[in-house]
């Protein structure tokens, strides 16, 4: 009895200690850094609200944040839709092929993000696959440079890199739908379109929404894709934060900018968490 209580207590303490060290202290440090200032390239440790006021009042930050949120939303929607289509296709295959395909989808997640961005540059670039292909089918005579170094290239790169999250989470949701549930709907006279909208989509949505959360949170804070394929218009919020830390050496301002992103991400995670656990999944009465 006593020993059990003791070991349980040790578990509790270690879990909280880990959370404290790995999550809460770094976040707390960030929060505090946001209240410091910079003079002549070195940090001044006097507390002030100057950074937060600047972040809130400067229209440039708001504009960049708005643009970044829009891109992240577009990327998430694209990932959701394409991920859904691919997951439905994969889920329809026979077991061996099905799990081979799902494994193939998961492989890119283990590869370096930078490699994926550079391969996208290879696809979209001046001598890239897309240009070669368009010349080959006779649609254009000269290679075009419009595919790379703009926001569309950023969107495409992010979708390319993040769509496995959507495919995998949606697949899990689809696979959990029992065959008998679909048969029951058919038995009651429902055709494939009605079955998709009234049975398959609502039943897989709680899983798919987790994929949307991943793609949104990861693309809203991304700075590598805009940096490498975004060109002059590719200034996103993630790149803004990165420049404060890596170029301007204004850590306090970077911390203040990050806080905004963090609050937004937590909000998205909270909404996704709520959507992924609808009332019908719970046992207790509504």
């Amino acid at each position: 009895m006593t020993a059990h209580w003791f070991s349980a207590a040790i578990w509790r303490v270690s879990i909280w200690a880990f959370l404290l060290m790995a999550v809460l202290i770094p976040i707390g440090a960030f929060l505090v850094y946001g209240f410091f200032g910079v003079e002549g390239g070195s940090i001044v440790y006097t507390l002030s609200l100057a950074n937060y006021i600047e972040v809130a009042s400067d229209p440039v930050y708001r504009k960049v944040l708005g643009k970044t949120l829009r891109i992240a939303a577009e990327v998430s929607v694209l990932c959701f839709v394409t991920g859904y289509i691919v997951a439905v296709f994969i889920n329809r295959q026979r077991p061996v092929l099905k799990y081979t395909l799902i494994f193939a989808v998961a492989i890119p997640l283990m590869m370096s993000y930078v490699i994926k961005i550079y391969s996208m540059r290879g696809l979209l670039g001046h001598t890239g696959f897309l240009n070669q292909f368009l010349i080959w089918i006779g649609l254009i005579d000269e290679p075009l440079s419009v595919f790379l170094f703009n926001l569309t290239a950023v969107r495409m790169t992010l979708v390319f890199a993040l769509v496995p999250f959507s495919i995998l989470t949606t697949f899990v949701g689809l696979e959990r739908i029992p065959g008998a549930t679909i048969n029951a709907a058919r038995d009651l006279g429902a055709g494939p379109i009605r079955i998709f909208w009234t049975i398959v989509l609502p039943l897989s949505f709680p899983s798919a929404v987790v994929g949307v959360m991943f793609t949104f949170v990861l693309s809203v804070g991304d700075f590598l894709a805009p940096e490498l394929v975004g060109g002059v218009n590719g200034l996103t919020y993630g790149r803004l934060i990165f420049s404060q830390f890596g170029i301007a050496f204004n850590w306090p301002l970077g911390a203040a900018l990050s806080l905004v992103l963090m609050v937004l991400s937590f909000a998205v995670i909270a909404v996704a968490g709520r959507l992924s656990n609808p009332g019908w999944l719970r046992r207790e009465d509504p």
Partner: peptide
């Protein structure tokens, strides 16, 4: 005739209710 066109209805083993409804 496909199952959705037959004038029969089935009570499935394990009920197969729609959990989200």
């Amino acid at each position: 005739h496909p199952m959705e066109k037959r004038p029969f209805n089935t009570v499935f083993q394990g009920y197969a209710l729609f959990p989200h409804m």
